[in-house]
Amino acid sequence: MTRNVLDTTPVGAFPSDAASSHDWQRDDLLRLFGRADWLTRQPRHRLAKLAPNATVGLLFYQNSTRTRISFQAATCLLGGRYIGFDSAATTRAGDFFQETLEDTVRVVGGYADLLVLRHVDDDAAQRAAAVAGVPVVNAGSGESDHPTQGMLDTWMMRRSLGDLAGARIGFVGDPGCRALRADVATVAKFGPAEIVFLTPEDAPPSPEQCASLTAQGIRHSTVDSMAELVRRTDVIAMIPFELPDFHVATAQERRSGNLATRYRLTRRLLEGAGRHVTVLHTGPRGEELPAEVDGLPNVRYFEGVRGGMFLRAALMHVLWEGRGIPVSDVDELEG
């Protein structure tokens, strides 16, 4: 394949799957981000020619809105089609037969050119990738990882700030949650000067996270209020401050609605000390990012949600290229 004009980093094979955030290195991510940037600039009729015969299998054993629908939209954007399920309760995995993950993956992998898996087990994506026979994308595994969320948030940060080297990046929420695990692991590959955490009182960064950041030469610290966080950072990525158990398919509890004021990113803060800070949120948002901030130019919540469609479309396309699955070359479309 001829190197296309949008790739500005060294040519090399992409990882064969997106099962783990740790498998994608800085150069891989830069090329992926370049592809996603290119997709955002193209008319829809051109994008629909990229993968018109591709079939994506969606295996969602756990609830999802943004991630699942963005993959559906991304598939349609590329001209492909999707199959699968959004609840294991509708499958033989969730009834009397209790079909194993491995068997379900092999069955649907026989119908599809790529699988997107969300599951309650921490090691589900790796188990799926070992037997699928087609690329596997981890759309959230238990508490362990959420690679495409890390890719999306890092891409959005770069689109806002440019190079992240030397940047001060804030993270809001439990660092042990899969989304922040992926965010921290992915952002760290781009050499920020400092990562600042605002966490629940009982959920500090783990010793392993701190040791990893230190080993990469990245300062890290913890603050106890949103006001201090906006003064210390250039960009903030948030997750819901109150979380369910990600090891169950459908959480039964509800948010308390009693989030302390110091954990809330208010309009007053963003129009004052935080007017320079770009704000992202994985969703679904709660009291930590109230609707009163909507419309502020530095709040990119809904923009990031829409960006997920382009980032995930780019990811699927490069995975197909890497596996030799027939898709259109972007150079052909440029021509």
Score class of each variant (00 low, 15 high):
residue 4 N to Q: 15
residue 6 L to V: 15
residue 9 T to R: 04
residue 11 V to F: 01
residue 16 S to G: 11
residue 20 S to V: 07
residue 25 Q to E: 14
residue 25 Q to D: 10
residue 26 R to I: 11
residue 30 L to K: 07
residue 34 G to Q: 14
residue 35 R to Y: 15
residue 39 L to R: 09
residue 39 L to A: 11
residue 43 P to I: 05
residue 46 R to G: 00
residue 54 A to T: 14
residue 58 L to N: 13
residue 63 N to C: 03
residue 67 T to N: 08
residue 70 S to G: 03
residue 80 G to S: 13
residue 85 F to V: 13
residue 86 D to K: 02
residue 89 A to P: 09
residue 90 T to Q: 14
residue 92 R to I: 12
residue 93 A to P: 10
residue 95 D to I: 15
residue 95 D to M: 15
residue 97 F to W: 15
residue 102 E to I: 01
residue 103 D to E: 15
residue 106 R to V: 13
residue 111 Y to C: 13
residue 119 H to E: 14
residue 120 V to P: 04
residue 122 D to M: 04
residue 123 D to H: 05
residue 124 A to G: 06
residue 155 W to E: 04
residue 158 R to G: 02
residue 159 R to E: 10
residue 160 S to G: 02
residue 161 L to K: 00
residue 162 G to Q: 03
residue 171 F to W: 11
residue 180 L to T: 05
residue 180 L to W: 01
residue 181 R to N: 14
residue 187 V to T: 15
residue 194 E to F: 01
residue 195 I to A: 07
residue 195 I to Y: 09
residue 196 V to H: 05
residue 196 V to L: 05
residue 199 T to F: 00
residue 205 P to F: 11
residue 207 P to S: 05
residue 207 P to H: 11
residue 209 Q to M: 12
residue 211 A to H: 10
residue 217 G to D: 00
residue 219 R to N: 11
residue 231 R to F: 01
residue 240 P to T: 05
residue 241 F to E: 01
residue 246 F to H: 11
residue 246 F to D: 00
residue 247 H to W: 00
residue 248 V to D: 06
residue 261 T to E: 14
residue 265 L to Y: 04
residue 271 E to L: 15
residue 272 G to V: 14
residue 280 L to A: 09
residue 287 E to C: 01
residue 290 P to D: 09
residue 291 A to C: 04
residue 296 L to R: 08
residue 299 V to W: 08
residue 305 V to M: 14
residue 308 G to Y: 07
residue 316 M to T: 04
residue 317 H to Q: 12
residue 320 W to G: 00
residue 321 E to N: 08
residue 325 I to E: 01
residue 328 S to K: 13
residue 329 D to C: 10
residue 330 V to T: 14
